[in-house]
Nucleic acid binder design. Structure first.
Ligand code: FES
Ligand code: FES
Lengths: 153, 153
DNA sequence: ATAATAAAAGACCTAAATATCTTTTATTGA
DNA sequence: TCAATAAAAGATATTTAGGTCTTTTATTAT
């Protein structure tokens, strides 16, 4: 569906929204550790997001990442656009070179419903929307710890 | 969404269903040409499908591919399972290591609707269902010719 | 039997996605 | 102004998906 780079990006942004403020930025190592992501790879991704002004970063001591007021209102679709492009929401589900009502594949009518639904979902959901669910304790952005077995030593 | 191998497979099967019978099999070169697919790559794919009994093939002169009665009733999900596996329909949209009601990501409730919808669609649609739409002229499995400009010479 | 045909099988190549490592630049506090 | 910090940037490595080419095997018609 979405590339790894893209879901890494989304999770990192949500984590930053939930855990950082301009006065208390969060570093890349901590983000990577908490989300079980490869540090340097995540670095590349956050770098891209910074360049596109989707997140904010400051170098040096006490530096790190945070989201300003506008960034928290960014929609998921914007992140997807930067990381993967939006083709997936406009392409034919059976790989025809174009998807249209004039030359539809036999799956078109049914497939379009879900493809468009996802597009709408991503277009109407903001980072803040998801971060709020974490804040309220109704959802999680960190992996469920699969190492509970280690705790019985 | 689905890998190229998978959509190539789906299109090829539908094309075979629409264009071949046991008494009039269709060769791989013709399929590849009509669907704008790389011949040898398609060969690999059809080989896999044959091994899984999803399509039928006969070697030698007058040989080629066709679908028997049962094969036409195969559901799309079966093809997807063979080509890509079914993980995509059970994985978290934000890449958490598991997707569950007990440890949901903040997108879970909304995302699940579409992911499950697609799973149901692919599980309830058969090759014959799609081939029929082609037969009836209500849909297409070949690309819309983008070379119409060539026709004005 | 044999030559021609067409898929199966296997080896190999290429490009893109994913991941790691090293160096540079900006910032801060001592 | 210097040392420490942390992100940016760049180079490189690995893995997987996608694609090509060659050889083998099965089938058919002559
Ligand atoms: S033509 Fe296939 S999904 Fe629209
Ligand atoms: S936990 Fe993310 S989709 Fe279910």
């Amino acid at each position: 569906m979405l590339s790894k780079s893209c879901v890494y990006a989304l999770r990192a942004i949500i984590f930053i929204a939930h855990n950082a403020r301009e006065e208390a930025k969060i570093g890349i190592k901590e983000i990577a550790q908490e989300l079980d992501l490869p540090v340097h790879y995540l670095g590349k991704i956050l770098q891209q997001l910074t360049k596109h002004k989707i997140i904010q970063s400051i170098k040096g001591p006490n530096g790190g990442f945070y989201l300003d007021r506008e960034s928290k209102q960014v929609r998921l679709i914007k992140v997807i656009e930067v990381m993967d492009g939006l083709d997936v929401f406009f392409q034919c589900g059976l790989g025809l070179n174009n998807c249209s009502e004039e030359h539809p594949c036999p799956l078109h009518d049914n497939f379009k419903v879900y493809r468009d639904g996802l597009y709408t979902l991503f277009s109407t959901t903001s980072i803040a929307d998801l971060a709020n669910k974490i804040d309220e304790g109704n959802a999680f952005i960190q992996n469920f710890p699969s190492k509970l077995k280690d705790s019985l030593k």
